[in-house]
Design a protein around this nucleic acid. Structure first.
Lengths: 344, 344
DNA sequence: CTGTTAGCGCTTTCAC
DNA sequence: GTGAAAGCGCTAACAG
């Protein structure tokens, strides 16, 4: 039987209200009494019951705000959002409301506005896919000083303390691509690398790690060129097409609009072994059809879920994350990982 | 704002107690009133609040029993248990108690005894790693008729309806091994397959799927022999050693005591490309050192967690699983997936 | 500073 | 059959 505030009230001879004040540092209590209560609670191994707590604080109508910048047609972000929504379901019965605010594109000014809107709507905690800009940095610092914890999701910034930061293990993600090249490459050759916006720190890290690890894992492969890709499918397609024409490499690592990449590969006059990031429906199809060779899956859904979950645990149980950064691992998918099973 | 029993009581002009009787089919209520209440609840979109519910039913002291048969020195089962323990933490605040019962070895008689013990200790729901035997089949059927839901974990039986069955996707797991062989095999050759007890249905399925998929994915590879392995490290080692001496195949798929397999591979006079199942510490080390080539990870922890979780959701929110079988996916791990990152 | 009390949404007596 | 009331463990408002 778990021990309750009532138990420790009886044990210390005070009322349960006093125990509450002591344990939650609410002030208006004799410091000595408070410390005695805390000591007893400690001894008895008291843990606050988060179920009872959240039922009680229900009328505080706690709000978690999620601030995203819209990525249109981006399966990765759709999945991140699916994870957020899943978490929303799970916290619903606890009376915690979740609202998603969408900024437009990579505009820090707009993101700042979203943050301020969230706060003015009474957000008690914020999940943020941050745009790295002084504007945002300052705002985040300010929010946290005001007691509003911020957790970074997917993207991040350096040198700014934040309640938690959850993202995929970008370095690992690059490293795994190197491993896959090691396994897939039948003969020496050049590698072409494509990546979405390097204004996102993680994307840079991923490519760096790929380069570093490739030199170790598979020195007979050399990266011929790294191409930064835009958002739109058409622009993206043209860039890939051009790059492939200029450098007809047999190996390719691709992060970007999947459709564009797949199309360019299919149209290339030379055979290409390719590794794609993220499992969009088109990537899934291409993998299954043997057009691309492997997919590195970065668990976007899990990331979204966890970011909300971490704030939920803070709000309901006061849990402070043990690690300031939580890295979600990546998986390797081959054709056989997703293909229809031959037997049901 | 979520709608509550109070809301629908007001709306229908009855007391909240009556609403409770109607919504939970407790009887002692005018059938017409009951159906009217249910209709209104439906219309208003009422969902029972699982937080409030579990706080209220706390004094019922609900118990989940987990019946395992001890697998000594088996990292896989240790991880399954870790998942169970993780779930235990999460349900603690809901006042649900979890007890683990351990049977000894593959003895159905003993497992039956554990089940009976669990029930006599007041278990309201049971997680079971079943031993396929008429004894157990009958008992499980009987338990469920008595209103005690049973969920199968990791292992399973066919043709017996059960509340839920959670395990890894064994067929997929075999299929992925075929995919890895396809990618790893530089030239045609024979494959040696090792597997733990075929008295577990999943293990048979896994090998079947490997065979079937290999014929499709990589017909130039043929399975030379399938060897069934015992539990103990030494026995296991000897068998692998002997098999490797008799069939010096260049490719190997291995499920069994990792230490034994690794040692045998290291001592083999010919080079071997190998795929191991499960990420024990020794497998991790061997993978990292390049002694083995890939590991197929079957998420044992997730399986354990989910099995408990599914019963928790039933007990607190009345949730009935949508799918009777929940298959946990498997991941491919290469050296680069687990290796120390070159940069921090 | 401290105790008492109402209430979060639901279940469960106990009267009527 | 139905309503009223107590209680699960905790918070918050109000007396004192």
């Amino acid at each position: 039987m778990a021990i309750t505030m009532k138990d420790i009230a009886q044990r210390t001879g005070v009322s349960i209200g006093t125990v509450d004040r002591a344990l939650n540092n609410r002030g208006r209590i004799n410091p000595e009494v408070a410390s005695r209560i805390r000591k007893v609670a400690q001894e008895m191994g008291y843990k606050t019951n988060s179920v009872a707590k959240s039922l009680a604080i229900r009328n505080k109508k706690l709000k978690i705000a999620v601030v995203l910048h819209i990525q249109r047609n981006n399966n990765y972000y759709e999945e991140v959002e699916a994870g957020i929504r899943e978490a929303e379901q799970d916290i619903f019965d606890f009376g915690i409301q979740l609202t998603i605010y969408r900024g437009i594109g990579f505009d820090p000014q707009d993101q700042l506005r979203q943050l301020e809107l969230a706060v003015s709507n009474g957000a008690n905690a914020i999940v943020l896919v941050p745009i790295d800009s002084p504007l945002i940095r300052d705002k985040v610092t300010q929010l946290q000083q005001a007691g509003i914890p911020v957790v970074f999701l997917t993207n991040f910034m350096e040198n700014i303390p934040v309640f938690s930061s959850i993202r995929c293990n970008y370095r690992r993600s690059g490293q795994i691509a190197a491993g896959l090249l090691r396994v897939l490459a039948r003969e020496p050759g050049d590698v072409l690398v494509f990546s979405t916006s390097f204004s996102m720190l993680g994307h840079r890290r991923r490519v760096e790690a790929l380069q570093a690890q490739l030199a170790i894992s598979c020195p007979q492969l050399t990266i011929r060129k790294v191409v930064e890709l835009p958002e739109g499918e058409l622009d993206c397609y043209q860039l890939v097409k051009d790059a492939l024409a200029e450098y007809p490499c047999p190996y390719l690592v691709y992060n970007g609009n999947a459709k564009a990449g797949i199309r360019a590969i299919q149209e290339a006059p030379h055979p290409i072994s390719s590794i794609f990031y993220d499992l969009s429906p088109s990537a899934r199809e291409a993998l299954s059809a043997g057009i691309i060779d492997a997919v590195i899956f970065q668990n976007p859904r899990q990331q979204g879920y966890r970011a909300v979950n971490i704030l939920f645990e803070y709000l309901t149980a006061g849990t402070i994350p043990v690690k300031p950064v939580e890295l979600v691992e990546c998986n390797v998918l081959l054709r056989e990982s997703i293909q229809e099973l031959s037997q049901p």
